[in-house]
Structures are given as structure tokens and as C-alpha cells.
Design a protein around this nucleic acid. Structure first.
Lengths: 135, 135
DNA sequence: CATGGATGCGAGTATATACCCGCATCGCGG
DNA sequence: CCGCGATGCGGGTATATACTCGCATCCATG
């Protein structure tokens, strides 16, 4: 029986792909996806921030952060700033274009959040967040 | 307020990364990860199966399936079979090594499933599966 | 039977993600 | 002050994933 049970991880991955596609589609007019939006939000909240700290905040590998930030940097949404202290740290902050992108993305993102909340109901959303935290 | 609310998608992605890492670590002794295990299970259940049908079964892009299957094929876990009908279909099935890998992976996977179920409790697991289906 | 739309795939390209290695810098202990 | 472990990053490599394009095959219709 248990060998026929659904794989929790596979289901979670599948749900994540589907939900990400939904958010990605909503953000597409701005040329960013949900991973980038999330990273931009984190940078905006923590800036100026080092790649290592960004990795800690997002639970992402530092090297992953580096590559993802590079894309945002290429697109002019974030920029490196001179760090006063540690010369190793590559401190990152939003550019005006990045702030503008975040601002315009907000309603699109909120719409996605609302849609999901409406579809699932507030209780199940809260349960989901709770379970994800416990994961 | 809502702009400060947690991003459901980001949380889901984060939880998926964490859970996947857990399953990946458990399956590492067999040289496969959870995505490959899941794909192998699907192939085992549907074989002989075309890439397109595999994609439908897993909600993955057909081109993604093609690339993922290629890795399994390179590792000798799956093989293409002559299709009696449509000459376009690249019918895939498990090799004996693939079946053996699945067999040995089963207890490792079950252990992961049990750990998660123990950590979350059966109700929350069921709720999670329910929510993911509704996503 | 011939042709054109539908379908199945592969390849190109791009991002997300992780792991490992090597380099540069930092800071502490001698 | 000097050296060595700790820390921060970039690059290499690999897989997962998606989108697009082009090719081959299929099939229904004329």
C-alpha cells in the first residue's frame, strides 16, 4: 500500500510548478518571474545586503543567489555598492529601475495572492503556510 | 499590509526546496534524486510509455521529460523500445537495472514519507495533499 | 493518392538550483 | 607582525524546468 501512496515530495513539486507558472504568467508583463520578484523583494527589504545574507534570508545556496542576482544586475534592476567594511562582501541594492519594477509588480502579485486565497479559503492558506513552516 | 504578507509561492518554493533536499539525500546512495525517482516510478507504472504521455502524467513539459529521461537512459535505468504503432513515439520502459534501482529505492523513500508524516501528523499531511490538489 | 493540419520529438536557449573548488580577504592568536 | 583558519565569492559542472523552432511522421480529407 504505502508503495502506492502519493509521494509527498512529488506532489509538492508539482504544486509548486503549477503555482509558480501562475505567478510567472502574472509577472511576465514586467519581464520578471516569481523567483526574481521574490529576490527583488528581499533585496529591497535588506539592502544593502551581501550575497551570503541574501542566501540566508531566502534559504538559497550562496552560489545560486550569485547567479540569480547576476541576471537582475544584467537587467539593471539591482547594482553592487561599495561596501564600507568587508572588502569581500558584494553588497547589493535596488536601482531606481528595480524599485520601479517592484512597485509595478505589487498589484500583479497581490492579485495572484488574492486569487489563491479565494480559491483555497483563508483557513487552508493558513494551514498551508503552517505546514510549510513545519516542513 | 498585504504587501508585507508572505508570498505563498515563495514559501511553497522554499518548502519544496527543503523537502526535495531531504528526499535527495535519502536517495543519494542509489545515485538518483527525488525527481528521477518520481520519473522512474511513473515510467514503471505506465511502461511502455511515450514522452508525451509521461509529460501528461507528471504535469511536466514534454521537452523537460525528454531531457530528464535522457539522463536516466544514459545511466542505464530506462531504455527506448520499438513502438509497434506510431513511429514518432519514443516509447520508454525500465531496464532491469531501473527496476532494481526502484526496488532498492522503495525503503529509502518510505522512510522519508514516514518521517514527514510523523513530523506533521496524518491530518496535516492529508490537508497538504488536499490543498496541493486544489492549487 | 496527394496534401495540409495535427502530433511527437529533439535541439537551442534561458533561468533556478545545488555542490565543489579555488581565490581573496578577514581576523585572531602567537 | 605573521600565519592560518574562517569567511565571502566566482566559476565549473550538473540537473530540473520551460519556451520556441524545426523536423518527421501521421492521418483525414479531397
Amino acid at each position: 500500500m504505502s508503495s502506492a501512496a502519493p509521494c509527498l515530495c512529488a506532489r509538492l513539486r508539482q504544486g509548486t510548478r503549477r503555482l509558480s507558472a501562475h505567478y510567472d504568467a502574472a509577472l511576465a508583463p514586467l519581464g520578471i518571474n516569481i523567483a526574481q520578484y521574490s529576490l527583488l523583494r528581499n533585496i529591497g527589504a535588506l539592502a544593502p545586503v551581501s550575497l551570503t545574507d541574501l542566501g540566508r534570508a531566502t534559504s538559497l545556496e550562496r552560489s545560486t543567489i550569485g547567479r540569480n542576482v547576476r541576471v537582475l544586475q544584467r537587467d539593471g534592476l539591482v547594482a553592487a555598492v561599495r561596501s564600507d567594511g568587508d572588502q569581500r562582501a558584494a553588497c547589493i541594492e535596488l536601482t531606481p529601475a528595480g524599485r520601479d519594477c517592484l512597485r509595478r509588480a505589487l498589484p500583479l502579485w497581490q492579485r495572484c495572492q488574492r486569487e489563491i486565497r479565494d480559491r483555497l479559503g483563508p483557513e487552508r492558506v493558513d494551514t498551508l503556510l503552517d505546514v510549510l513552516s513545519a516542513l
